[in-house]
């Protein structure tokens, strides 16, 4: 289950994770070896088995839609890397 460098770069792009050229190669080797260990699962017959997503049989939990106090904008913006006039500053999202 050997990955190529192109595949690694594509996954990094999907994960929005910057990787150096060295990182890409190291990641390629390590991920390939880990994926190799996953192959054992393909030998198990699970054709009639339902998947388990959560182990507790709880269903959608709803509460009354009541308004209550929340955090102040100051509390939330206290951790913002670049707050500006009550907003989070980011680079332009829409390009020309």
């Amino acid at each position: 289950m050997a990955l190529t460098q192109e595949e690694v770069s594509h996954i990094a792009k999907l994960a929005r994770l910057g990787l150096s050229a060295e990182d890409v190669e190291r990641m390629r080797e390590q991920l390939s070896s880990i994926l190799e260990h996953f192959q054992v699962l393909q030998g198990l017959d699970t054709s009639d088995i339902l998947p388990t997503a959560y182990v507790v049989p709880l269903h959608s939990v709803l509460r009354e839609d009541l308004s209550e106090d929340s955090f102040s904008p100051e509390d939330i913006l206290a951790n913002a890397p670049r707050p500006e006039e009550g907003y989070f500053r980011v680079q332009a999202v829409l390009e020309e």
Partner: peptide, 13 residues
């Protein structure tokens, strides 16, 4: 991968 693992999860449980 993910779906297969969730099915094996059922077996282990």
């Amino acid at each position: 991968y993910y779906l297969k693992a969730q099915k094996v999860r059922t077996l282990i449980r």
